[in-house]
Design a protein around this nucleic acid. Sequence first.
DNA 1: CGGCGGCTTGAAAGGCATCAACATAAGTGG
DNA 2: CCACTTATGTTGATGCCTTTCAAGCCGCCG
Lengths: 226, 226
Amino acid sequence: MSYAENDKSQCIQCSLATFCAYSEKHGIETKRRVIKPKETLQFAHDKFTNLYVIESGALKTHETDLMGNEFIRGLYLKHEVYGYEAIYKGQYPFSSDALTKTIVCEISYQHFLTLLHSEPAFLGRVLYLLSQQLTARYYLNRLSAQQKLSAFILDLSARLLTKEPHLDFLLPISYRDIGSYLGLATETVSRVFSKLSKNNIISIQNKHIYLLDSHRLRLLAEGAMP
Amino acid sequence: MSYAENDKSQCIQCSLATFCAYSEKHGIETKRRVIKPKETLQFAHDKFTNLYVIESGALKTHETDLMGNEFIRGLYLKHEVYGYEAIYKGQYPFSSDALTKTIVCEISYQHFLTLLHSEPAFLGRVLYLLSQQLTARYYLNRLSAQQKLSAFILDLSARLLTKEPHLDFLLPISYRDIGSYLGLATETVSRVFSKLSKNNIISIQNKHIYLLDSHRLRLLAEGAMP
DNA sequence: CGGCGGCTTGAAAGGCATCAACATAAGTGG
DNA sequence: CCACTTATGTTGATGCCTTTCAAGCCGCCG
């Protein structure tokens, strides 16, 4: 893990862009870290001191149960904030690994709190983002594998496709991890992807996904179609 | 829906007790509402203006999909806060119904924001509670019905059993709603409960649950036992 | 007391996990 | 840059768990 130069060209779309703006006003610079693929940013039970905004790349959080099975618990993409779940116990509840080469902005929680107090607009922004998180990942308790995976693809596309006309993106996560995240076997994930592809709802090759029929995909996610 | 007299004997354990303390300091009284069983507190898309603390009873949130199927999305018990998920869109995303006779404290969001600004300790408390919510309901993507339900019972017991030595409580929700919440059929919920009862892990009659062996229940939730 | 919603239990069907074998991609070292 | 190794994805067969359908029971409330 190393530090990176400050390149703020990407920051406009950052979900905490206001944080950086206010930080500069208060004369504080934000640190950037580069995390190599599969490298760990924080281990479970590490003391909580920082939030992180993903500037590029992606993180997954995971835990291992008594039987040694790994469970994926969260996925953090470009412009999203990782760390809120650690406030509660004062430590990160899960390990967080980079899925690809990832650059994060390190935000001191102390500094973050100070800004929450002094900048009402920033507090509003953070409450907005936290509120959004509370109803995310609704699809985890959907019943069928096809519903879960369809909803998952739609969720990913909404989070990754900032430029409107584009309908394709790279899956930042392995089938095994998708399965673990959704409570499905790797093979099931593969089979459902094949089926969606065969039915011309998406096209997929080497993790490159193209949404051919997002309308039908939405129907599948709602369980409105076989 | 009607209003209730103020009886603050229960407020000590309220998760936002500090809110009321500060409110009084600022000379503002908190309103109480009584909601009858099956009555609706807020409908989906209602404009968001208030948070609610459950003083007694329980709420469920639910939505209906394209096919007309109802999905239970959340469960709010005594001393817990309902409404955070509405900040995001400025409207309540789901309908919320009382499961039993329920009394809630109505908290104006405007007033809530004011207090967040003026009282740092209150801000800390709210962030703590929100952080906790982010990792709750982890068991929804567990694989087997037994794991989900075991984890659900443990979750409920942790939230309902404030007095330590007690190990029994009343299920505040129907089997149908539990199934909808966990992504299981009503019959499966019934069968798993029967099995847990037959194996002397819990005893259950008429929604009254007694934890006979919470250790083994925890193992079941982790998937460590057949 | 009668009706209705909620719970229980059984039998059948189907979806998904599991196991196994293979194919392909990615990563490593010479 | 290629050969080797390892990780990841694909495909088929089998069995189990859960859903679904059906029927009956129980408790509750009007």
